[in-house]
Simulated scan of single mutants.
Amino acid sequence: MSRASTTVLHDLSFSIARGDTFGIVGSNGAGKSTLLKVLAGIYQPTRGSLVQSVSSVSLLNLQLGFDENLDARDNIVLSGMLMGMSRRRMRELSDEILDYAELHISAAVPVRSYSTGMKARLGFAISKYSRPDVILLDEVLSVGDGHFREKAEATMRDMMMGEQTVVFVSHDSQRVRELCNRVCWLKDGRVQMIGPASEVIDAYEQYLVRR
């Protein structure tokens, strides 16, 4: 995978099974966010291929997504339609989404006035209720208040019990250990290790201590 004539990801080869909660860890610049954008179809690999057997993928990244000039309800509809949901269905779900995100009081104001944490809550709630086949989370649980993080983590555990696939990028290795069943450790755009969460996180934390 190249960006601005610089190779970001090198020789990656792995699969994510349906129902996995798959973590991606690595230091800044390791290629984690770039990999999520490849999985989401935002970036196309310059070599090799990405094979998907799903119909809908949602990337929740705090630097992407909402139309800042629209209010929460309109963004709910827009985001859902981009994931293949109907306008009517998203309007039906809007009250439940706003309740989950705890944003009813701010539903009618443009999203540009939202804090980072409020945007994260709205995005996560949309993904919860629109139920894409795969949800990609990029550092989303690192913002907002502790109350909402606990609720979002409980939702992720519910997802793990079902068939929804979650790919979760975070610098919080302990949270990845607790939430994910498999983990990929990236270093300089290359896979260092893929396997059960506890084994990979142990190796990654040992590397951080040595470094």
Results as ranks from 00 to 15, higher is better:
142 S>E: 05
161 M>L: 11
33 S>M: 01
126 I>K: 10
91 R>L: 14
74 D>G: 09
3 R>M: 13
3 R>Y: 15
54 V>F: 14
156 M>W: 09
31 G>F: 01
111 V>K: 10
4 A>Q: 07
161 M>T: 11
32 K>T: 03
61 N>Q: 06
183 V>K: 07
209 V>D: 07
81 M>E: 15
124 F>R: 05
60 L>I: 15
201 I>N: 04
4 A>G: 11
162 G>H: 03
105 I>L: 08
37 K>S: 03
168 F>D: 00
120 A>N: 00
166 V>F: 02
18 R>G: 07
87 R>Q: 07
150 E>I: 09
189 G>M: 10
91 R>Q: 14
111 V>I: 15
9 L>V: 05
155 T>A: 13
126 I>N: 10
69 N>A: 14
65 G>E: 08
25 V>S: 00
30 A>C: 05
146 G>A: 15
6 T>C: 11
49 S>G: 13
168 F>V: 00
63 Q>W: 10
142 S>Y: 06
52 Q>D: 02
53 S>H: 12
176 V>N: 01
4 A>F: 06
55 S>I: 06
156 M>N: 14
48 G>A: 04
59 L>S: 04
11 D>I: 01
1 M>V: 07
129 Y>W: 15
192 Q>V: 11
131 R>S: 11
116 T>F: 12
74 D>F: 06
193 M>R: 15
176 V>Q: 00
146 G>V: 12
40 A>I: 03
35 L>M: 07
185 W>P: 01
85 M>N: 13
137 L>T: 01
207 Y>L: 06
175 R>D: 01
97 I>L: 06
88 R>V: 09
49 S>T: 05
65 G>D: 06
14 F>N: 06
4 A>Y: 14
3 R>I: 14
96 E>H: 11
37 K>N: 07
106 S>N: 04
177 R>K: 15
27 S>K: 08
144 G>V: 07
17 A>L: 12
78 L>V: 12
64 L>T: 04
180 C>Y: 00
32 K>C: 00
170 S>E: 02
158 D>Y: 01
159 M>L: 14
34 T>Y: 07
136 L>P: 02
194 I>Y: 02
69 N>Y: 08
17 A>H: 13
30 A>V: 03
57 V>Y: 02
40 A>Y: 11
152 A>Q: 09
168 F>R: 00
144 G>C: 05
16 I>L: 11
169 V>R: 04
144 G>F: 10
174 Q>F: 12
189 G>K: 05
143 V>M: 02
90 M>T: 07
163 E>T: 13
118 M>T: 02
52 Q>V: 10
112 R>H: 13
21 T>L: 09
204 Y>C: 01
65 G>Q: 09
4 A>N: 13
45 P>L: 02
68 E>M: 15
192 Q>D: 08
146 G>W: 14
158 D>W: 00
130 S>C: 13
109 V>H: 06
122 L>D: 00
42 I>V: 12
76 I>W: 03
201 I>Y: 05
39 L>T: 01
172 D>A: 03
205 E>K: 03
36 L>D: 01
207 Y>S: 09
205 E>N: 12
192 Q>H: 05
88 R>A: 14
128 K>D: 06
5 S>V: 12
49 S>W: 03
13 S>L: 01
175 R>F: 10
